[in-house]
Design a protein around this nucleic acid. Structure first.
Lengths: 203, 203
DNA sequence: GTCTATAAACCGATAGAC
DNA sequence: GTCTATCGGTTTATAGAC
């Protein structure tokens, strides 16, 4: 799945086309966040990007191609940020919570994930495997962090690493979905309280 | 819609119509669970109920009418059950967890709520207010229970009732949505572990 | 109560002009 | 690159026969 612009000829044309793609993806994020993938229409996306849906086809031949671009955008916006710093142990948890806090400033991102991932529960949804994989990797990341902490005696002895990881992940997902309905909830603070209870050290 | 027919006849017809409605609702729960409200079609629902979608219109004039019936059925199946036993304090939490455990035997119910509630994040969704209200009432129920427990010293002193309530609710929602992707997760057990950490007494 | 048949609207995809 | 025009398919809703 390499990018389609593999042969960069004139730099100007490439930059312009790249900019257009970004505008379309941005519009698609809005529409898919509001209406989901199935009900979000190409005509609506195109309208917000200032085009017709037929013109958009030059950049994204099918609707699924557009979805894949949106998911890739989402990926870059979230996981990459946390991975570049290579934290270990308790710093993974701190980075996780900081990332959740930052998400509070970007409701569109949170809503996109909530809506698309729920749709993707159906096995025939084009994003089904994407979200299965996403959550499995998140669980692995947290499990490794808690395992390291357990060796150091920083995790309560009666809590297994895998269980702690799933609790943090599920609480994050649940709190975010409640927050989408009631923006007065302080997601990061409540997540920090909850996670702190699992530990023997200060978070 | 009462006919001029006399009693025995009318009773039979009424019971038949009521039974037909239940069959349609049952089919709608299946279809909406699998495909959501927007993508789940009246034709599919009707087919599973052994009718045509036009014939179904006699029982549910519009698609939104059918959705409302499904939501009402779901309501009766869950929250009502917990409310009828009138538990207080820690017994509310125990009843909650027992209810979550029972949900494990009914994936369609859990998937229905996950898919419909995510769709209903959009303010223009017909079930938007329904889910806002549902989660607010669940939070109130749990907050009152934890407040009672706090008075009895059963809740860790540093945890506020409102926060404990939201943590249990969000963890429940998050665990269920992970469970829909990986059925090997023991939702009730992990929820019990997590809730137990918040308490000073055995759950 | 349930059916057949169809209206009216909308969807994604595409052909072809410019 | 973007447009107009349109195709084939799908949807909800409805009219009317039985």
């Amino acid at each position: 799945m390499a990018t389609s612009d593999s042969a960069p000829r004139a730099r100007g044309e490439y930059a312009k086309s790249s900019q257009r793609r970004k505008e379309i993806i941005s519009a698609a994020v809005e529409v898919f966040s509001e209406s989901g993938f199935r009900d979000g229409t190409l005509r609506t996306v195109a309208e917000r990007a200032g085009m017709t849906h037929a013109g958009m086809r030059h950049h994204f031949p099918t609707k699924v191609d557009l979805l894949e671009a949106v998911l890739k955008w989402r990926e870059v916006e979230t996981l990459e940020r946390a991975r570049l710093t290579h934290p270990i142990g308790i710093d993974v948890i701190r980075t996780w919570i900081a990332s959740v806090a930052e998400n509070t400033t970007r409701p569109a991102l949170v809503e996109l994930e909530a809506v698309l991932s729920a749709e993707a529960i159906s096995a025939d949804n084009p994003a089904h495997e994407y979200f299965n994989d996403l959550y499995r990797r998140a669980e692995d990341l947290l499990t490794r962090a808690f395992a390291t902490m357990a060796e150091r005696g920083e995790l309560r002895a009666e809590i297994e690493s895998e269980v702690a990881a799933r609790l943090v992940l599920s609480t994050t997902l649940g709190l975010q979905s409640l927050w989408l309905r009631n923006r007065s909830i302080d997601v990061a603070t409540e997540l920090r309280i909850y996670t702190g209870v699992l530990l023997t050290v200060e978070l």
